[in-house]
Amino acid sequence: MVARRDFEPKIIGFLCNWCCYAGADLAGVSRYQYPPNIRVIRVPCSGRVDPAFILRSFSNGVDGVFMGGCHLGDCHYITQGNYYALSVMHLTKKLLEQVGVNPKRLRLEWVSASEGNRFAQVMIDLTGQIKELGPLGVGEGIDANRLKLKLEAVTRLVPYIKILERKRLRVRFETTEEYDRYFAGDEFKKLFRDLIADKLRTEEIMLLLREKPMSVEEVSEALAISPSEASSYLNHSARQGIVRFDEAQKRFVLADVKEQVLS
C-alpha cells in the first residue's frame, strides 16, 4: 500500500443536521481550514443513514465515506438514532471487509454543534487516512470489475440484512467501546458468518452466472476463492434450486426461478 501524493480522494459525508452539520458550519464561521475533499449530504439524523447509501457511494467509486452524528446521549430526537448509526457503521464495515474493501474507508465520528475545531480536525485526519489507503480498489489490490460485482451483490442483500439486523443482530449499549467490543467479538463473528457471509457468496455467484454460464474453475477465479469452496457453494445453490448444472455447456447456469433475496 503506497500513499500517492497526487491522489486526491473523493469522500462523501453524511452529516446529521443538528450536531455534525452545525459543527461543520461552525468550522466555517471560525475559519478552521481543512482539505476540500468531502462532499456533504445533510440528513436529519445519523440514524437516517442507510447501509445502501454507503454501498452506493462506494459503488460510485468514492474513496471514503464519513458519517457524522451527535455525541451519544445528545441526539436531537428521542429515537436516539445515533446509537443505530453506530450499529449500521459496524455492520457495514464488516460487509465492506467481506467484499474486500478496506473497512477503514468508512468512518463515523460524533461532532457537536459547538465543535467546529473538532470537525476540521476530523476532516484533516480522515482525508489523510484515505489518502494513505489509496484509491478505492487500487489500495486493496482488487480488480475494478470484481469490486463492482461484489458491491452490487452486497447491495442486493441490504433488505435481507435489515430484517436480519432487527431479528438477530440488534444490540444496545451505552458506550462506543461496548459497541466496538461486541462487533469485534466471537458472537457477532459467528452470526455474521452463518447468516450473511454464505448468503453474500451465493449472491455473488448468481450475479456472475447472470452474465454467462461458468464452470467451477471460472467461478473460483472470478471470486478469488478456492475451487473446492466454489464447488461447495455451487452445489449448495444447486440443491436450493437457484442454479443448475447445464450438461450441454458443462457449466453452471442460473436456474429459471425468481430471485428471492428475502427468503
Partner: peptide
C-alpha cells in the same frame, strides 16, 4: 428523523424531503 426509513427493508416508509431517491441522487451527483 427518518430512522424508520433506514430500517425499512422494502423502502415502504419514506421520510419526505429526505427520501432514498433524493439522497441517492446526491450520492450519484457527488
Amino acid at each position: 428523523c427518518g430512522l424508520c426509513n433506514a430500517k425499512c427493508p422494502t423502502q415502504a416508509i419514506a421520510l419526505k424531503h429526505f427520501t432514498d431517491d433524493e439522497i441517492f441522487a446526491q450520492i450519484d451527483a457527488a
